[in-house]
Design a protein around this nucleic acid. Structure first.
Lengths: 197, 197, 197, 197
DNA sequence: GATGAATGAGTATTCATTCAT
DNA sequence: CATGAATGAATACTCATTCAT
């Protein structure tokens, strides 16, 4: 009775190609036709799956931010020892890997969109909420272990995220590896000073 | 003190209307026709002044970033007393006024463009360089006056800018005034701790 | 008295939904997808039953005109007395009920189609032929009873239909109930004068 | 200062080609591209002049109905003698010429549109109002001259129009010249009987 | 300096339809 | 019987731009 749905697989496939087009052509030049062309399918097929381009963009942001979640969940705290986990966290958040994880162009295009589409803004907020949900218990464990001073864990989480995003924002722009190292070191030191004394 | 040519006046007028269209319609929907429409002139006139749209976008980014320079030069250090100037600087950089100074949508659209157009990237870099050119002597005067510890003034400048941009980035997204106050206070305290002890 | 096949039921169901879409969206915007959408079935299903859209339109016109036949057969002459039947006929043909019986938009869309598709033109001609097949014996009975003057019954039938369609055409457009009453009265008087003296 | 406007000429030219496409391809298949193709210009030029297709359709209906006005003003009463003018009017309104004046397909497509677009409905109403503005004084002159009985001139005008449109409607469909003659004769006789006794 | 004509490439989306399941 | 995948052609419309006036 009816044909087997390929929707989930196809949709993911489309979004992956969307990413490539976005990266290569830029947000303002990313069209359904170009994605379809790259996939070697008919443009109307994308409409078949997403109904409108707007819907596709929403799905794309969700898809993109989902990747970030996976990343920060996996990448950060792989140790039993709180001190080691604290060090890992800082090293990860202020590392060149993190800086280079995402295509600036794709991520900031989406960030820009968050200022124009409430739904996308919410997706971003959710992403940071999930990030904080991971960070806060971690921070509490650092406090318990006496690695950092007692203070409001949420504020500490916000603080870490802001430093991290500020650094990313600034160094994506500067494209200056030496400068990045200097700045990352300064920030890390500042974090340690702020939280441990 | 020469008279401004009509062309310069017209160009400025166009860029101001570009800003409005960008804000109201979004970057992806801002077209020459719409700007011309808003100005009640013929689209060809805009081409006449800027040759191409790309050229116009470049001019716009220059125009926009110019505004920022004016702002941070005027807004920050209006006192003779170094301590007072230090306080003013922190209060300005982590204030709601600063957060609300620019339309997020317009600024981040341009920031996004910096990842796709070398010339725009340079304009941004220049803007931050100028910001640093203002900050660094200021920072040195704080050190001299013993308000903050001795350290590399450029790193301190970068650090302040990164904190500021990180906060702006995060709170534009969060749109949560209470949260902003909490975060701003935490960051300010962190800056003081980092620099003065 | 055989059971209607599922296909026939389905087809009728489809045509009824076609009517709704035609009425709500207009002939130029009535698509298979929209009908299917309204019915909550897959568009391919409509093709399955009608092979092509054109075939479906033909079936629809047949279906629509069938309704008219039923109406004028039922609505008009429900009496034994010829005079009463004559009065009933006139009252029906120039009544507001008749005017409002059909959706103007749907009927005239089909009438328009008759100018482009021979098969649809024939369906319309047949419909009027059937109408005349009902009217002519009626008219003959009026003559026999001496209610109207002797003359060519077919011409009288044509004449009645033309007056009726002219009035409908004109008043659908005017949408002016007072004017309609005035016009209907004038026409009725004209008919009486024409036929009885 | 600026280029000379060709708008009026061009618009008329476009509408004339619209007529042809409408006639040849049918309302549902008349597209901007096809008109442009026929004119050997770029489709966007039509948009340049009319902004939207809808606007173009409105302009077209205006253009089409304007032709009718010209026709009935010129065609009908070219005599000084009231009796002759009365005869001329009837002969014109029930003549084959009148029947064949317009492409059925184009006119009824527009009539259909009047049921969907208030603005088009108004254009039709205006057209008939103008027709009546010509007919009513004429009718009054017939009464004055004793050619027809005294009665409400507006009702007489409506009556004539309805008969005329009814006949047109019916015979466009029937495409049967012999039948037309018979019907036209019957109607004319009926009109004479109705108005003169 | 400014307008309007004109173009050509591009946009998202809709459509009827075919075919596999 | 019915669904969903997929196509390809078509739709109105927008865009930046060129050129004549």
């Amino acid at each position: 009775m009816g044909r087997k749905s390929k929707a989930d697989v196809r949709k993911k496939e489309i979004l992956e190609h969307f990413y490539i087009v976005l990266k290569d052509e830029g947000f303002e030049n990313a069209s359904i036709a170009k994605i379809a062309n790259l996939m070697d399918v008919n443009p109307s097929l994308l409409i078949h799956y997403f109904k409108t381009k707007e819907e596709m963009v929403f799905a794309f942001v969700e898809f993109l931010l989902g990747r970030y979640e996976v990343t920060f969940k996996e990448a950060m705290f792989n140790s039993e020892d709180p001190q080691e986990r604290f060090d890992n966290t800082l090293n990860t958040m202020f590392s060149e890997d993190w800086l280079n994880f995402s295509e600036q162009t794709v991520f900031y295009a989406c960030y820009y969109l968050s200022s124009r589409h409430a739904r996308i803004k919410e997706l971003f907020q959710e992403m940071y909420t999930k990030f904080k949900d991971v960070l806060i218990p971690e921070i509490q464990s650092w406090m318990k272990a006496g690695i950092i001073e007692e203070s409001d864990p949420e504020s500490v989480a916000d603080y870490l995220i802001i430093m991290n995003e500020g650094l990313t924002y600034f160094d994506k722009l500067m494209s200056d590896p030496e400068g990045f190292k200097r700045r990352a070191a300064f920030l890390k030191a500042s974090v340690v000073k702020t939280l441990t004394t």
